Amino acid sequence: MKKTLPAVLASAVLSLCTTPAHANATVEEGKVGIHVKGHGLRIDTVDGYMDGQPAGTRAQLYTLAARSTPHNITGWQNATHHTWGLTKTSIVHWYWKGGQTFPDGTRLCIVFNKAPGDNPCAIIHR
């Protein structure tokens, strides 16, 4: 038993230091947020949300890679309005069947036409 305990502890510490790759993230900036789900460098779904329900709310996804200009990966999508009690939110959703792969270190960002300046980005990494 004494010989296996150090091996178990070593594997536990190693698993904490080298977490498996995943692409799940939630980032908020101002009144806009982005929620990304996937595995490794592959993204399956992206949800964007904005506080409030202004008429004509639309959102678009773009990427920022190291030393490059922004690159639009989706067109503008109309947001749906949801109300939970006193909370009013505009929501957009993208789903990529089979996922979409991005290079390591790419920042996946969202912009809402009714919230200029609030553009949160999730970093895709191993």
Rank of each mutant, 00 (worst) to 15 (best):
M1V: 13
M1T: 10
T4N: 09
T4I: 12
A7V: 14
A7C: 11
V8I: 14
L9Y: 10
A10K: 09
S11R: 09
S11Q: 12
S11V: 10
A12D: 11
A12I: 11
V13P: 04
L14N: 07
L16V: 03
A21C: 06
N24Y: 08
N24Q: 11
T26E: 13
E28I: 15
E28T: 15
G30L: 00
K31C: 07
V32F: 06
G33S: 10
G33Y: 08
I34G: 06
I34W: 06
I34Y: 07
H35C: 11
V36Q: 09
K37W: 13
G40I: 09
L41E: 04
R42V: 14
I43L: 05
D44H: 10
T45F: 04
D47W: 12
D47S: 08
Y49V: 03
M50T: 08
M50S: 12
P54H: 04
A55R: 10
Q60S: 02
Q60K: 06
Y62R: 01
Y62I: 02
T63F: 02
T63S: 02
L64R: 06
L64M: 13
A66V: 08
R67Y: 15
R67N: 15
T69P: 07
P70Q: 03
P70N: 05
H71V: 13
H71E: 14
N72H: 12
N72G: 07
I73M: 00
G75A: 00
N78V: 01
A79L: 00
A79K: 00
A79H: 01
T80M: 12
T80Q: 13
G85Q: 13
T87R: 13
T87E: 15
K88I: 08
T89C: 09
S90Q: 04
I91N: 09
V92Y: 01
V92R: 00
H93L: 01
W94V: 02
W94Q: 02
W96D: 10
G98A: 07
G99P: 05
G99S: 06
Q100E: 15
D104Q: 12
D104W: 00
G105K: 00
R107E: 07
R107C: 04
R107V: 01
L108G: 03
C109P: 07
I110A: 08
I110R: 03
N113L: 05
D118R: 06
D118W: 08
N119P: 02
N119V: 08
N119W: 10
I123T: 15
I124H: 07
I124G: 08
